[in-house]
């Protein structure tokens, strides 16, 4: 039981760091530009597809990863230049419509380019196999690597945001955009940078998760909505909130799915408990979100209630 618990805790944390990589860019985009981007989830998917193609072309995981990251950065810049730039001054409704349109375009485009059959990306030799944790418990090295990379990225982002000049501008932009602009900062360039950076992080998350998932066109959607939950819980514009929210959502979701039926079995008959557990577990994160919002409408680390 404790082994299962530890295993699921690790799985939850691993889902959490992936969610963080996606939510980090999204929360900055929300916070700084007051822009709702539904197309952020498809960037995660595109990252995985680009990774799959590069892995096929080069035959090397590391080379493919090295190519995917700048490719996604360029992808983000292109999208910002062609579509998003025209939407900053628009209403939320227009942003929802246009980015929803983009979701349709990109998902179908991916289907046309890569076909609808799921793809796989081979795991690098260096990180395959599993490692013993405690006693008989083993855990795949690759999943541990994701966890470490995710945590390292979070640390890197933290340093970037709290210690550098760009980070200072980002924080200033999140609290008062007009003032930053009035002080002579090129806000347009700052926006483009945040966008491209967010696209890169989401694409990176898609690329590193590709070897353990099958790459298909639906993978961006569930993640997008979980990322929304993360941002709502953490508070818009807060990287720290995104990190805490992502870990919370990752762990609660994973734990709920595996332990929900077990806990319910203690108080009711097994068959009904299994059914009820499977039905309720996916709802757990949303209930958590509702509870947190009810207590704190601006999220855990949100600065202003809007």
């Amino acid at each position: 039981m404790t082994n299962l618990f530890l295993l699921q805790l690790l799985n939850g944390a691993q889902l959490g760091v992936l969610l963080f990589l996606i939510a980090a860019g999204l929360t900055l985009i929300f916070g700084i530009m007051d822009f709702i981007n539904l197309a952020h989830g498809v960037l995660y998917m595109v990252g995985a597809y680009v990774m799959a193609s590069f892995a096929m072309l080069t035959g090397s995981f590391w080379l493919a990863l090295g190519l995917t990251v700048p490719a996604m950065l360029i992808c983000g810049l292109l999208l910002e230049f062609t579509v998003f730039r025209a939407l900053y001054a628009r209403s939320h409704l227009d942003q929802v419509l246009a980015t929803f349109g983009l979701v349709l375009v990109i998902s179908e485009g991916v289907k046309i380019l890569w076909g609808s059959a799921p793809l796989t990306v081979p795991m690098p030799d260096l990180l395959s196999g599993s490692v013993g944790l405690i006693g008989p418990l083993k855990y795949p090295v690759y999943r541990l690597a994701i966890l470490v990379v995710g945590l390292a990225s979070a640390l890197g982002l933290y340093v970037l945001i709290t210690q550098t000049r760009i980070g200072m501008l980002l924080r200033a932009g999140a609290s008062n955009r007009e003032m930053v602009s009035a002080l002579g900062v090129n806000v347009g360039r700052l926006f483009a940078m945040v966008f491209a950076f967010g696209a890169m992080l989401a694409g990176f998350a898609g690329a590193i998760v590709a070897p353990i998932l099958s790459v298909d066109t639906g993978m961006g959607e569930s993640v997008l909505i979980l990322a929304f939950v993360v941002i709502v819980i953490g508070g818009i514009g807060s990287i720290r909130g995104a990190f805490m929210g992502a870990l919370l959502v990752g762990v609660v979701d994973t734990m709920g799915r595996s332990f929900g039926p077990i806990v319910l079995r203690m108080i009711m008959e097994p068959a009904a408990a299994g059914q009820l557990g499977r039905t309720l577990a996916p709802m757990l994160v949303y209930i958590l979100m509702a509870a947190i919002l009810f207590a704190r409408p601006a999220g855990l680390f949100g600065r202003r209630a809007e």
Binding site: F30, I36, V96, F228, V229, V232, P297
Partner: peptide, 16 residues
């Protein structure tokens, strides 16, 4: 809540 929060939350509840 307001604005983007409202959009995301209604979306999340419908996903639930």
């Amino acid at each position: 809540t307001r604005g983007v929060y409202f959009i995301m939350i209604t979306l999340a509840f419908s996903q639930m």
